[in-house]
Design a protein around this nucleic acid. Structure first.
Length: 937
DNA sequence: GCAAGGTC
């Protein structure tokens, strides 16, 4: 006679218990209340491997147990935070889970089997063992089984129940280890920071209103903060650099138009950019070299997982992740959407998606689209993103909500529901179809490109109004070999920008990349930054650390404990835990190792706590009589505005501080960050560029060219209205004589503006650039400096002075004697070899450099001008710098990258001092050293 | 008063 089993099935969520019992019982499960209001019982008869049984389903609600220190260690002053690395820990069922525990025990006593239907991940396995622990106390004879399922559909659940396995203890132990590490380091460092800082500073004055604020530390919240501080430091360390690019535009007689984008994008070398621009101006006829037209598809969005929904909701609905999750939770509880915490972004093929679509046929907003989907006209099988947590489908609407039925909803909730519905419908719709035309154009030897796009069928975009697929739908019709005259041909200047502050979307992506938090907790960690006063969000929803957040991170950095905040911290912990999960290392060994490691960090931090006091003291004044850091709390005494940092020897640079007092900060970020404050605002040059409205030249009626006039740095005593011509560098009050019609007004030569500017050590761009980056790309000497060098050199050579200054506008006079050309390049067979007087380290001696389009930064072919000219212009092919047969005289024949020492006057670009007789400057990498032929770098 | 992870 067959024995009848009573089987207790425990799911992690009530919804899973309900769905599984409904599927296995063909919707005939009886529901009964249990001791726990939120965890009812579902029971039905079933045949388990042929054995008749009574199936009882119930659920827990996440973890049943918590890990904490026992009572004596819970009081903050009862022990040193250091002791928390060796203190015992206890796992217990907290008060709010006692009802669930009672329910499980009561049912376990009546059952013979226990089947665990928890999520099929590490945390789920750990919860399974918590359930086992509780149930075994009530019934030690229970037979324990684990159901593994990959979707909550009948077929899959039946397969699962007939292939029961055993729970995996290694997975569970990995979570135990993770919990213990998190608890010990979180509690110890939180107490350390809080007890150190709480009483010492006047937090009220700095917007922290808690009487006794807590400065929590956590292995997820600090790496999150670290991401924000790192970005802040990147922004502060950024030095704007000017770049130049050729801008071309064409408007066809029929009215269509396009911008021609330079293939080089941009150049940081003004000389080269100007020369290339000049070659275009000389031969401005554009020739179409390639026309490529093809159909292009734009695919609909992937099915929504939690993090992708958060990112989309932030972008399109401007709903912060945490708020979005709260609203999604409500929608889920009310049955309008599926479970909102899922990693899955692919639908199970067995899912009846069309049935879900049919829910929406009568909707006034998207019903028509749904009807076209239902008829098959608009239907497409949704793509998958390759992630599956095997527990939940992607987030999708489960029920239609009529607009008049959800009047009571908050507007944000309605918007979120609409977004989820439209995303779902879009993901199952046909891709959009466009027609793209790519056109390549040559002007002189320069290549340009433009793209046109006509959207033919919007398809999924019809139901998803947030999508943008923009392109130039007004492209002129082009054919290969067609020629035309550009309507505009300009040399434009731009400046590099510091990276932007992180948006919530950026932050989520970075956290996802580094494995900080889970899909369900990422939003909480971000919110915690705001709650703790570590970060703020501005009107544009961008995040930045507060002075407190920055000070905390900077403290650990100074202590040499950056691993405590770097984004890799969580990944490192996870890596070790994974070894436990795979059974490669015992839990205790990994745990001991981690605890010892962080214990060492704690001891180091505690030993250097004065650094934290000092760092926080930079931002916050001490509480009166609070024993604060005293001198360190206020602004630092004013010092040299620009120079070597007293702390680390690196350069100091000008910053744009948020504070009122300007300061310079050491550019050794994030190594140093020493700040020197000024007593008064610094004098900065007006570097604003203004397009020239008066010197537009008309060359033969072909086109109009605007040479931008640049407002020069104005030294004291000079006319503020003076401008400098980009090409010839003369300063004028009115119009440029060389370029236009008016008289020059500025003084010239030494004592003139150029000399004065040089005396200030400024380049063409922002004042701090030249000072801080003597050896960088932006570190070319100012124009005045360069001219001075030219002039000295000319004198020594016995050439007449003033060649550059009196040269008329045009290629030869573009930058004085600095650049002429182009010459025929033997490498490329094109006139792309230009003559340049290298400003950095080669005073007075011009050389040839290739500016072929294939060499984005200019190739390294070069030759000295006098040698080239002496040989009447060479036509045979030469190799790269190192292989050229006629290397610079002073240096002998460099085999690799050795730059010549013309007359022994080569300057060290970093120090500005002349190189000694044996020193060489590498042509390739710019480094100086005593290498003879081959640069070691 | 502390972590992070589940979930309602």
């Amino acid at each position: 006679m067959q024995r009848t089993l009573t089987v207790l099935n425990v799911a992690e969520k009530n919804s899973i218990a309900k769905q599984v019992s409904a599927a296995l019982s063909n919707n005939s499960a009886a529901r009964a209340n249990s001791c726990s209001n939120y965890n009812p019982l579902f029971s039905f008869p079933y045949a388990l491997s042929g054995t008749p049984c009574e199936m009882v389903f119930t659920s827990v609600a996440g973890h049943l147990m918590e890990l904490d220190f026992p009572e004596p260690y819970k009081k903050w002053h009862s022990c040193s935070p250091l002791e928390l690395y060796g203190a015992p820990v206890v796992k217990y069922v907290p008060q709010d889970k006692k009802a669930i525990e009672r329910n499980l025990k009561e049912q376990a006593r009546k059952c013979q089997w226990l089947i665990l239907w928890l999520d099929c991940d590490r945390e789920g396995e750990n919860i399974a063992f918590e359930v086992i622990d509780v149930c075994k106390k009530a019934n030690p004879r229970l037979v324990i089984k684990r159901a593994k399922f990959s979707a909550l559909v009948k077929r899959e659940l039946e397969r699962s129940v007939h292939n029961l396995g055993l729970p995996d203890e290694n997975l569970s132990k990995a979570v135990d280890a993770r919990q213990e590490i998190d608890l010990r380091i979180g509690a110890s460092f939180t107490r350390f920071q809080t007890l150190l800082l709480q009483e010492k500073f006047n937090w009220e004055e700095h917007g922290i209103h808690d009487e006794r604020p807590v400065f929590s530390y956590g292995p997820c919240q600090f790496p999150t903060l670290g991401l924000l501080v790192q970005r802040q430091w990147e922004i502060q360390a950024h030095v704007a650099e000017p770049f130049w690019y050729i801008y071309a535009m064409y408007r066809a007689p029929e009215g269509q138009s396009c911008v021609l984008h330079w293939q080089r994008d941009r150049l940081y070398d003004h000389v080269i950019a100007t020369i290339l621009y000049e070659t275009c101006v000389e031969a401005p006829t554009a020739t179409v070299t390639k026309v490529d037209a093809r159909q292009k598809l734009r695919y609909p969005p992937l099915p929504l997982a939690t993090l992708s929904l958060q990112k989309e909701a932030i972008t399109h609905l401007r709903l912060p992740g945490e708020r979005m999750m709260k609203l999604a939770e409500e929608l889920y509880q009310e049955g309008f959407i599926s479970y909102p915490r899922t990693e899955t972004d692919v639908f199970d093929p067995a899912y009846d998606l069309k049935a879900l679509v049919r829910e929406h046929l009568n909707d006034a907003r998207w019903g028509q689209h749904a009807q076209r989907m239902d008829s098959g006209e608009m239907w497409a099988v949704p793509r998958g993103g390759g992630h599956d947590d095997h527990a939940h489908p992607p987030i999708h609407p489960t029920r239609w909500s009529a607009p008049d039925a959800n009047q009571g909803w908050q507007p944000d909730k309605r918007r979120l529901y609409e977004f989820i519905v439209r995303s779902f419908l879009a993901s199952c719709s046909k891709p959009a179809v466009g027609f793209e035309t790519q056109v390549e154009v040559a002007i002189a030897a320069e290549a340009f490109r433009t793209t046109g796009l006509m959207v033919k069928e919007r398809n999924w975009m019809e139901v998803f109004p947030w999508a943008r697929w923009g392109g130039n739908d007004n492209l002129p019709v082009f054919s290969v070999n067609q020629t035309f005259m550009p309507t505009e041909l300009l040399l434009k200047e731009g400046m590099t920008h510091a990276p932007p502050k992180l948006s919530e979307r950026d932050l989520i992506s970075a956290m996802e990349r580094h494995g900080i938090g889970t899909d369900a907790t990422v939003a909480d960690h971000i919110q915690k930054q705001l709650d703790r006063g570590y970060a703020v969000k501005d009107a544009a929803q961008l995040f930045a650390p507060t002075p407190l957040g920055e000070a905390l991170v900077a403290s650990y950095h100074k202590m040499g404990l950056s691993n405590l905040w770097q984004p890799t911290l969580r990944g490192a912990i996870e890596h070790n835990i994974t070894e436990v999960a795979r059974g490669l290392r015992p839990k205790q060994a990994v745990l001991d190792e981690a605890v010892q490691h962080f214990r060492g960090d704690y001891i180091a931090a505690a030993g250097k706590q004065a650094m934290m006091m000092e760092e926080v003291g930079r931002f916050f004044g001490p509480r009166a009589g609070g024993g604060g850091p005293g001198e360190a709390a206020g602004a630092l005494p004013p010092g040299e505005p620009i120079g070597a940092c007293a702390s680390c020897g690196l350069y100091l640079m000008l910053c744009k501080p948020a504070e009122e007092t300007p300061f310079v900060a050491c550019s050794g970020a994030p190594l140093c960050r020493q700040r020197v404050y000024f007593p008064r605002p610094t004098q900065t040059a007006d570097i604003s560029n203004q397009p020239c409205g008066t010197c537009q030249l008309d060359r033969g009626g072909l086109r109009k060219i605007c040479f931008r006039l640049r407002r020069a740095a104005i030294p004291p005593g000079f006319d503020a209205e003076m401008v400098a011509c980009v090409l010839c560098d003369q300063r004028f009050k009115d119009l440029c004589e060389a370029c236009g019609t008016a008289r020059p007004a500025g003084q010239r030569g030494r004592g003139g503006l150029g000399g004065a500017v040089a005396g200030r050590g400024q380049g063409r761009g922002a004042a701090p650039r030249g000072a801080a980056r003597a050896n960088g790309r932006g570190g070319q000497p100012g124009r005045g400096q360069r001219r001075q060098r030219d002039s000295d050199d000319e004198e020594e050579r016995g050439r007449p002075r003033g060649r550059g200054r009196t040269a008329p506008r045009g290629r030869g006079g573009g930058r004085g004697s600095n650049a002429r050309g182009p010459h025929m390049c033997p490498q490329h067979g094109q006139p792309c070899l230009v003559l340049i007087s290298n400003s950095a380290g080669n005073p007075g001696r011009a050389y040839l450099r290739c500016a072929h389009p294939s060499e984005a930064q200019g190739c390294l072919d070069f030759a000295w001008e006098d040698e080239w000219n002496g040989q009447g212009g060479r036509t045979e092919a030469r190799g790269r710098a190192g292989n050229m047969g006629h290397g610079p005289r002073g240096a002998g024949r460099q085999q690799h990258g050795g730059r010549g020492n013309a007359g022994g006057r080569l300057m060290n670009a970093a120090t500005g001092l002349p190189l000694d007789a044996n020193e060489r400057s590498c042509f390739k990498c710019g480094q100086n050293g005593h290498f003879a032929n081959v640069c070691p770098n």
